[in-house]
Design a binder for these strands. Structure first.
Length: 109
DNA sequence: ACCGTGACGTGTC
DNA sequence: TGACACGCCACGG
């Protein structure tokens, strides 16, 4: 049981707002929530995997690498989902990451 | 209670 | 550039 039962929900809420075909980073979410750290975001998403409809595949590390692919049902699922949305992935990294990147701070506008 | 281990990030050298 | 240290916080052994 996490100390902040809300934390996982918050992370999930943010993740759900990521537009299709766009991606964001663990750090961006952590900044937006001004709570916890990027590490905790990864932790929260990991805890979220079963039984939720959170597009966790749209969250990558700051270099645009699919660092969490090994935690999905299959190691290739993350990439497949991204490419299905038009996000090209090459060698476990997002192509044109700068253009695909979307920050949750956009929500404040 | 201590310690290693993460789906991480930033600063230094 | 690339390697490394350190901060981060929760969890399991």
């Amino acid at each position: 049981m996490p100390k902040n039962p809300h934390y996982i929900e918050d992370v999930q809420d943010v993740a759900r707002t990521i537009p299709e075909g766009r991606v964001t980073t663990y750090g961006a979410i952590a900044d937006f929530l001004t709570l916890g750290s990027a590490r905790m975001v990864g932790w929260a998403l990991h805890r979220s995997l079963p039984g939720t409809e959170v597009p966790a595949h749209r969250v990558v590390n700051r270099k645009g690498e699919l660092s969490g692919r090994n935690n999905f049902a299959t190691p290739t699922l993350m990439q497949e989902r991204l490419e299905a949305e038009g996000v090209r992935v090459e060698n476990d990294r997002i192509v044109d990451f700068d253009e695909k990147f979307w920050s949750p701070t956009e929500l404040l506008k």
